[in-house]
Amino acid sequence: MKKGLTQVYCGTGKGKTTAAIGQGVRATGHGLKVIMIQFLKGRPTGEVEALKNLEPEFKVFKFEKQKKFFFEMDEEQKADLKSDIKNALNFAKKVLDTKECDVLILDEILGVIENQLFTEDEIINLIENKSDEIELIITGRILPERIKSMADYISTIEETKHPFYKGVTARKGIEY
């Protein structure tokens, strides 16, 4: 890769992780190594199961033990989650320092900022210190202005209509 850039998939719509994974799959098709670190996603998903077929070129890491959504957690569980996320961020720094991959996906890292588990400055530090040889992809709902100004690509996925509002719960193989 000539120069690694920073990509962002953000917004309220469904498909941010799917888009990031698609970019990672494309990269593996050209012989690039991909690492995805998932944040705030403790539950198993179909896409992560499918990606096991692409190992070792596409590796997925989760550090969280919690299986609940953030809004369902008590303060002790949130403290444990913050510790898990700190381990994940340290791993991301290590991956960037050692250049273990060509593409690093930090899935739902913007949610870490949104839920005030870590500061925007800590995430900006990751972006600023990435090697020019690594493509960085970040996802999440809300994109802070300072990170927006640092990104090379921004794709916003907005919700126009969602079956959840008609009482349809998440479906295996479609939403997870």
Rank of each mutant, 00 (worst) to 15 (best):
N53Q: 15
A20E: 12
F71V: 12
N90E: 15
L40C: 13
H30W: 12
K67W: 10
E75H: 00
I109F: 09
T18V: 14
A19Y: 03
K16T: 03
V60K: 01
E72Y: 10
K59M: 08
T28D: 04
F63I: 11
I37H: 03
K41C: 03
I123L: 05
L32Q: 15
K41F: 12
F69Q: 01
Q77S: 10
Q116A: 09
K33D: 12
K16H: 09
E64F: 00
F91V: 05
K99G: 00
E64G: 00
F61Y: 15
V48K: 00
T119N: 05
K67N: 12
M73D: 01
G46W: 13
L40F: 12
K82A: 11
G111P: 03
L117K: 00
L110N: 04
Q66M: 07
R43K: 03
T28H: 02
A27K: 08
V112D: 03
F58P: 03
K41Q: 13
P44M: 10
Q38R: 14
K82F: 01
G22I: 14
K86H: 10
E76S: 07
L106S: 13
R26V: 08
D97L: 14
I85S: 06
A50H: 11
L117R: 04
A19K: 08
D107A: 12
A19H: 02
H30E: 06
E120Y: 13
D80A: 07
L81C: 07
A19P: 11
V60Q: 02
K86Y: 07
V48R: 06
V25H: 08
P56G: 11
D97W: 13
A27F: 10
E49F: 15
L96Y: 14
I21R: 00
I105K: 03
I124S: 04
D74Q: 05
K59T: 11
L104Q: 01
Q23T: 09
I85G: 04
E108F: 10
F71Q: 09
